[in-house]
Nucleic acid binder design. Sequence first.
DNA 1: TTATCGCTGTTAAATTTATAACAGTGCAAA
DNA 2: TTTGCACTGTTATAAATTTAACAGCGATAA
Lengths: 214, 214
Amino acid sequence: MAKQLTFKNLPHKTIERLSQYRRALLLCLSNGKTHIFSHEIAKIQHITSVQVRRDLMLIGYSGTLRKGYNIQELIDLIGNIIDSEEGINVAIIGMGNLGRALINYFTGKRHKLEIVAGFDTNPDKIGNTFSGVECHSITELNKIIKQKDIKVGIITVPADQTTETAKTLVKAGIKGILNYTPKPIDVPDDVYLEEYDMITTLEKVAFYVKMSDE
Amino acid sequence: MAKQLTFKNLPHKTIERLSQYRRALLLCLSNGKTHIFSHEIAKIQHITSVQVRRDLMLIGYSGTLRKGYNIQELIDLIGNIIDSEEGINVAIIGMGNLGRALINYFTGKRHKLEIVAGFDTNPDKIGNTFSGVECHSITELNKIIKQKDIKVGIITVPADQTTETAKTLVKAGIKGILNYTPKPIDVPDDVYLEEYDMITTLEKVAFYVKMSDE
DNA sequence: TTATCGCTGTTAAATTTATAACAGTGCAAA
DNA sequence: TTTGCACTGTTATAAATTTAACAGCGATAA
């Protein structure tokens, strides 16, 4: 049998780590390094070298003995796996502080993943451009999603507008949603949904801090 | 043997879900509901009712047959477990868009967890107040952390200041750090660290969207 | 009053994820 | 040349987490 051609069954956690490895590798590359050992990657990510090697095994990448992994090669391979060849367009719905933070933070970092539109209801924001991303009225969402072939939407609206925003996105044919509001949403099975709530994470940190005191 | 008095060995995932349950419950309460079934909580959180019941079993809470769980009681119990009795003070380092988003988003939501100070290097921001949180110079960090008994720090500075910020926090005696920058940090074992990188999450969504196409 | 139903609480099994164990390999020093 | 060493790659084991299975129980209705 030939090598697997798709990576559909990579563990979810491995996917996340590949993304993180790539970021670390890009940084190393920009520092002039050409090779890296599994234990170096591990140190950066606070994991073990075994896990790094195992992940790389799963994607079929081999390093060089006593020399480590070729950083550029590995970056390219991870790109082949997690990036979409033709690129994926992303929209941000909600141009408040969080939305603008994401745009700032993201713009120009990944050429296969681009934020191509922002949306808001505030007339003062509509028509303006934030870090190169134009803000449109949310009434135009459907039109622009289709026009620009936007596949992923990031929801950063106030909590009370979350449900409605999600519905609009689904109706417009979005394929993936990242919900940063504290309000969970429902989507059809064919829309990939990821929810992240900052309060939960903060409460978790607080819990373990409290525990370490007792 | 008596019932366990601490909850040190609750699974990490259960801790996260308890926080999420509480938020959902608070919402239900404000809608006038008094009781809720496990499958209702499950639906909101996109998990199964078994998992909800299992989590509640772990914290020793019993519902009423055919009536479900008493929302107020459950909220209080979750509070007893995850909140610190005397409250925990939090600081935000980096008053850019992300830092301000978090403040906005968080202020007044949890009385046992309060953001009591912000820090930045930008002279235009220092001295100003954002949603009730005063912004101090980062040079005062050590002093104020101690003065206000701040136990948790949220890092939202630009990536290139991350390492230094973390060092300063650790030196000031912080107990927990939530790092929202894309740059992983190192902390001593007695500091609880949680790192979250938005790019990773977005790349994950993009990956599964790409996969669903193939 | 007895059968049914819809829910809880708990134990058992399966799945996912991480860790450990170790074979293989080639440089490097003796 | 051979012994040790520092890595990689893989298989085996363990730990964490989720899901399944099912007993119990009280309201409801026949």
